[in-house]
Design a protein around this nucleic acid. Sequence first.
RNA 1: GGUCCCUUCGUCUAUCGGUUAGGACACAUGGUUUUCAUCCAUGAAAGAGGGGUUCGAUUCCCCUAGGGACCGCCA
Length: 464
Amino acid sequence: MKTVATRFAPSPTGPLHIGGVRTALFNWLYSKNKGGKFYLRIEDTDKERSKDEFKNQIINSLKWIGIYYEDNVYIQSDKIDDHINVANELLKKGLAYKCYCSSEEIEEQKKRAKQKKIPYIYNRKWRDKSETDAPKDIEPVIRFKSKVEGKSILKDLVQGKIEIENNTIEDFVILRSDGSPTYNLSASVDDHLMGMTHIIRGDDHKINTFKQIQIYNALNWKVPSFAHIPLIHTIEGKKLSKRDNASTLDDYSKIGIMPNALRNYLLRLGWSYKDKEIFNLDESIKYFNMEGIGKSPSKLDISRIYSMNEYYIKNINENDLFNFLINYCETFQENIPDLAQKKIKKSLHFLKNKAKTLEDIYKNSKFLINDNVKIERDDKKLLDETAIKIIKLFSDDTNKLSNFTRENLEPIINNLIKKNNTNFKGVGQPLRICLTGSRFGPGIYDILCALGKKEVSKRLSQIG
RNA sequence: GGUCCCUUCGUCUAUCGGUUAGGACACAUGGUUUUCAUCCAUGAAAGAGGGGUUCGAUUCCCCUAGGGACCGCCA
C-alpha cells in the first residue's frame, strides 16, 4: 500500500479564510493519522489575480495554526511546462482537440441558452471538424474530449456514490488561447506528479472531479481517492466568502483567539468522534478519520469559538499561556516591559479567570502594566465622599502592615465594612476604581496583593 | 433553468432498526464565592412533511418541501 499523501492547494487570489484552513487541517490530519505526507501547493496560474501578499498570508496562516507541510511550498506556475506537455500529448493521442470558436461566438451561445432557459453546454463544434476549416485569425483553445455517453460514478469517501450523466460534462478547456493551462489540467497533472493518494477538498469541487478523473483515465494514471467535505456556511446559511467579516485567521488572532483553540473548534466543525469535544494535537491526529466527517454544511458559531478559547485559556500550561499572551500583546497591543511581564506572569492564575480571549487577559493586566491610573468619568462618579473616606481609612489601617497578604488584609476590610455600615461592594468597588481605573477586573484581594503595599499606597495617595 | 448534494434542540453534533433521542456551546433559574467573573446544580430546547418496507423506524426506500454547491479561456 502506497504511503498516504495529501495536499492543500489554495489559489493566492484572496486571503485564506477559515473554511480553507479547515480543509488544510483535514488534509494534514488525515495524512498524519496514516503516517503519510502533507504538501502545500500554491495554485497561481491565474496571473492577473494572484498576489504575493495572499501567498504569504496563506503560509503565515498555516504556520500560525500549526499545520506543517513537507519540503518547500509547491508553486504551480513553476510546472507550467509539464502541464502544457500533457495537453499536447492528449492532443497528439486524439484525446483533445483545438477549438477555434471566438469568445464572441461562445458568449452568444450562452446568451441564447439563457434566453431559451436551457442549460448551456459547449456544442463540441470543433470536436470532429477538420483543422483545414480553421479561421486564420483565431488562436485556438484546446479542449478535452469528454465522454458523451454513459455515466460516471465517483466513490466519494465522504459523500458515498455520486452518479452523473457524462453528457452533462462539456468538453472543457485545458489550454487557453494564449497557451496557458487551466485549472483542471494543472491540478490533475500536479496531483499525479506529486503522487497524491487522497484529495480532500471542498464540496464546490465535485463537478471538477468528474473532469479530472477523465484526464487521469485518458493518461492511464492511477486515480486518487476523493473526499468532498461540506462547506462552511455563514450564520445566514451561505457559502463563506472572503468578503465576510471575521473569516480570516487574522480576524481571530487579533481578538486574542489562540491557535490551538481555533484548531480544536475547526476540527469539530463538521467532524466528530463520539461525544468528545476537546482534542489536543496528538488526539486530533490519533482520532481523525473520514468516517467522522458529516455530510451537511455547518455554520460558523463565534460563541463556540470563544468558549473553546476560554477552555484553552483555563486549561493549558501557564507558561504556554504566558507566551501566547506576550506574543499577542506585542503583535496587536503594545510591548510589555520586562518588569510588567514578571508581574503578569506571577498573576496569571487570577488574570486568566475572567477571560475568554487573550485580549481579556491583557485588559485585566493593564493595572499591572501602567502605573498611572486613569479613571473613566462614569467610574469617577462612584467615588463619592463616603467612598473617599473609606479609602483613606483603608490607607491608614494598612499602613501598619509590613506586606500584603489575603490573610492580613481580610480582617481589615471586614472591619471597614462593619464600621462604615456598608457591604463588601462598598469597600471593594472604590478600591478597585482607584487602583485600576475600572469597576471591572480581578478580585480585590488579587489586585492588592499583586500590586503590593508600596504601589497600593502610592496609588491611593493620589486620590482625594 | 439544468446537474449534483444536504436536512436530529437556536448552533456544533451522538445514534450505524428497539434509547425516557445523549453530549457540548448559547440561553434561563438556583447555589457557592461577603462585588463582577469563575465554579456547581437544575431547566427549557430537536428527528422538515407525507407515503411505504418492518413486529418496530430518527435510522432503509420513494415523493414533496426547504437549503446549498456547481454550471468561466477563475481556482
